[in-house]
């Protein structure tokens, strides 16, 4: 059990990073990565929602499976994620307003983050049990956070670098993202145990 949890964790964070090798969640990765602070906030929020969504969707999937409706799981998962994000938003607004303000618009946008839907669908595809699902959800989120924080810190530096004027703004960000993805390619094909 422990071995599988560890191998899932390292796999989700480094080897099969959601952004760099599965290309899920690229939209917030590019959108909320201009400052390290917001990137960290986004990473934490996504990790939280991915972990919780994995847990609840595991239960929902079991329910649908019993009723022979597993083909409806994508639809049901979207519903769960939307409700979850709304709940998290309400909860944060009431109890931790400072974090709520720091996350701002990124919080409701997690609803449309494909990494969240991706992780719950992959949980089904890989036939993970409850603990493995939650582990995969949380560590997948941590992998997302690692990627977006690394990317944001590089972008903060790139602002002061000299590059051709035509690369100003988004193009240089995409080049940066590509180089980072190449660096993460170094982990590909690694096997544990």
């Amino acid at each position: 059990m422990l071995a599988s949890v560890i191998s899932i964790s390292i796999g989700a964070i480094l080897i099969n990073n959601f952004i760099f090798s599965k290309f899920l969640g690229c939209c917030p990765f590019l959108g909320c990565s201009t400052k390290v602070d917001t990137a960290v906030g986004m990473g934490i929020a996504v990790t939280f929602v991915m972990g919780l969504a994995s847990a609840i969707c595991y239960v929902v999937d079991g329910l649908l499976r019993n009723l022979g409706l597993e083909y409806m799981n994508t639809l049901a998962f979207i519903l769960v994620i939307a409700v979850l994000v709304q709940l998290v938003e309400m909860f944060l607004k009431k109890s931790i307003p400072s974090l709520y303000n720091a996350l701002g618009i990124y919080l409701p946008l997690i609803t449309t983050n494909c990494a969240v839907l991706g992780v719950v669908l992959l949980n089904v595809q890989y036939k993970y049990n409850f603990i493995e699902s939650v582990t995969y959800g949380i560590t997948g989120g941590l992998g997302f956070m690692l990627a977006i924080v690394l990317f944001a810190s590089v972008r903060e530096r790139v602002q002061f670098a000299e590059y051709p004027e035509s690369f100003e703004g988004f193009p240089i960000a995409l080049v940066t993202a590509g180089l980072l993805a190449l660096a993460f390619m170094g982990f590909s094909g690694m096997k544990l145990g």
Partner: peptide
């Protein structure tokens, strides 16, 4: 229903 209830509970 859960959301409606939560909106009441967490109303700011």
């Amino acid at each position: 229903a859960v959301l409606a209830f939560a909106a009441k509970v967490f109303h700011v």
